[in-house]
């Protein structure tokens, strides 16, 4: 019972945070509603017994990344968008597509739930640090190492794009 109440609480908070992110005109408020979203997703992870993921979610996303976001927003000194944007045909189509996509997802995931199978992912204790460390160092060793190449490339990219360049 408590689990179900918590699930609804976190889901509604999470969705509210995401909606707030999109509809807030003030970038700081938008970023803060993103934090609400991050925290409630961490709550959902906890209720799925993925403790490690929940902690990392809060540490990395709600902590480090959000601080970075806020710094950037404050340094750029963004103003609140004054005019509400017009609702033209392009936006209308995008809105319709978004609605259709949401409906599709709800339909598909409901069909998943109604057939009442336990997802295979829930059958082993994936939430603790030990099984995660174990699989990162065994079956997922290669992808784990290769992610460092993505990060390295991103790092180089940030430097290439951001540094003052004299093209020597």
């Amino acid at each position: 019972m408590v689990e179900i109440i918590l699930f609804w609480l976190f889901s509604i908070l999470g969705i509210a945070g995401a909606v707030g992110l999109i509809f807030n005109r003030n970038p700081i408020y938008a970023a803060l509603s993103l934090i609400i979203n991050f925290f409630s997703i961490a709550g959902l992870y906890l209720s799925l017994r993925a403790e490690f993921l929940a902690v990392i979610q809060i540490l990395v996303y709600a902590g480090a990344i959000m601080v970075l976001f806020l710094f950037v927003i404050m340094l750029l000194n963004l103003q609140t968008e004054e005019k509400a944007e017009k609702f033209d045909a392009k936006r209308g189509i995008a809105f319709l597509f978004g609605l259709a996509f949401a409906a599709e997802m709800i339909y598909a995931l409901r069909s998943f739930a109604s057939e009442g199978q336990t997802p295979l992912a829930a059958q082993f204790d994936y939430g603790q640090v030990e099984p995660i460390g174990r699989s990162l160092m065994t079956s997922f060793l290669f992808p784990f190492e290769m992610i460092s190449v993505v990060l390295l490339a991103a790092l180089i990219g940030a430097i290439v794009v951001a540094r003052k360049h004299t093209y020597t």
Partner: peptide
């Protein structure tokens, strides 16, 4: 041979291509 690997490969490739696109900044 694994979807995770497909995704990581795609990201590695894309990350470099994004930088190529923005090279002449």
């Amino acid at each position: 041979h694994d979807l995770i690997m497909t995704f990581i490969g795609l990201e590695t490739m894309s990350m470099c291509l994004y930088i190529f696109a923005a090279l002449f900044k």
